[in-house]
Write a protein that binds this DNA or RNA. Structure first.
Lengths: 249, 249
DNA sequence: CGTAAAATTGACTGACTTCAAATTCGGTGG
DNA sequence: CCACCGAATTTGAAGTCAGTCAATTTTACG
């Protein structure tokens, strides 16, 4: 007997279930969504600013990030995405992409026609609410990133980013907040925190010297979670992972 | 004969119609939403971080802003809202408010039960898509603000904010991009751009000296729109005001 | 094993902050 | 209409965190 292989869109079901409990019918409907699978190399574009995407993409494996390039050539990264994330509800439901999405690592991506997304959202209100909720949580993270870049110093910005990454990995059962692989270069970390790569380098070394983290290659170990949270002024409420959902309308 | 008074929720209908054309049935349904009207003084909270709001509020008149206070006491403003904005889809659909919303000016606000919002969204998919679209545009503006604070210098940040404010006022037919009242103190501008109020002051004076704007009290006149756009690296695509909507699914 | 990308280091610079004081504005009550 | 008072704006001087530019070392990987 072959062991049963879980359907490929399972990560999307799991992600949406972080936000709303879904019944059997809803789960089946999601797993049955028509889609085109694709293996994508690192640093490849999934969507480019200016595109009018006809498909929404879901990350089944690997990491990706959103960014925009300003007129002076500098770059701003506004989000990092991981397994199960419906990376492009943002762009595909809006008419024209206002930013680009690029892979960070090798990734497996499912492209789903945007009409199918809309159909399922209104045919199954529970799914619709879960997807809407998901875009609202993305919005909440954007707001926190505004605060991060606007009001924290270099060490605080990086500490905050490290806390967020750890917690989000844990939420999707992909790792441990105290030790994980951070698949970003220092230049990408700089673009995500509004710094220069030189200063990211010095600041990471400083966090290490102070005994908050340890590093080896792309791996990060948090040596003192409590102090890292303090330095980053980190409070996980904005991730909405612990809100009571079952009682919500 | 009395002249017909337009129903109070008309600004919401108009705002949503920026995103999706609505039929008669949809418009009627929105105008018929149960709500509680309230006049609110300046600087009053509409939602506080930590609340579990049971109502969503719509701004019918006046201005408001979203913000969060960091542990060190500093403040980050992540959005400014105006007439017709459904200010709190963000917080009320999520379980617990992750930030606060406060009035900037005297305002007229309609509080609508969150269940009613959800009911109408799924009963009328066109309304649901328009509301979802609205939250996605909010998200797009958040991303642009991340870029603003992360990558532009002081003059660029303020120039960008001034361009955005002018265009958004125009979009809801509440003013002229070249001349309007900006109902924010320099301290609030500082919290919206990640600066100090002292530096906001110096930078505004600099923009004035360079002939880009003129100021009197809270009024701003843009003396050279093109140059102001250049300084702010402003591109209005992220506001999604000119995307083709009628053809969208 | 070779090469390009990424990380690290050093010296110098400057945009913005900080702290404090002075001035002007805006609204209120007499 | 004007006097008053707190809030908001403006000004000044000094300090600093992070940027810039350029060189060196290490790593990743075909």
């Amino acid at each position: 007997m072959q062991p049963t292989v879980p359907p490929v869109l399972t990560p999307l079901v799991k992600k949406l279930q972080l936000w709303r409990p879904l019944g059997q019918a809803e789960q089946q409907a999601i797993l049955a969504l028509p889609h085109k699978l694709e293996e994508v190399l690192p640093n490849k574009y999934l969507v480019r600013e200016g595109d009018q995407p006809s498909h929404s993409c879901v990350l089944l494996e690997g990491f990706a990030f959103r960014h925009k390039v300003l007129v002076d050539g500098s770059r701003s990264i506004s989000a990092v995405h991981m397994k199960g994330d419906a990376v492009d509800l943002q762009n595909s439901l809006l008419g024209t992409a206002d930013h680009s999405v690029q892979t960070l690592t090798r990734a497996t991506v499912a492209f789903i026609p945007r009409e199918e997304i809309q159909r399922i959202a209104f045919e199954f209100p529970l799914i619709g609410m879960a997807m809407w909720y998901d875009t609202l949580v993305d919005g909440s993270i954007f707001r926190e990133w505004i605060a991060n870049v606007a009001r924290r110093d270099a060490a605080g910005r990086l500490a905050h980013l490290l806390c967020e990454f750890g917690l989000r990995l844990e939420a999707i059962e992909l790792g441990d907040r105290l030790s994980y692989e951070l698949p970003m270069t220092q230049e990408q970390l700089a673009d995500a925190t509004g710094m220069t790569s030189v200063h990211v380098n010095r600041t990471l070394m400083d966090l290490e010297t102070r005994g908050l983290i340890a590093r080896a290659k792309k791996f990060v170990a948090v040596a003192d979670w409590k102090r890292l949270e303090d330095v980053g002024g980190f409070n996980d409420n904005y991730l909405h992972l612990r809100d009571e959902k079952s009682l919500l309308p």
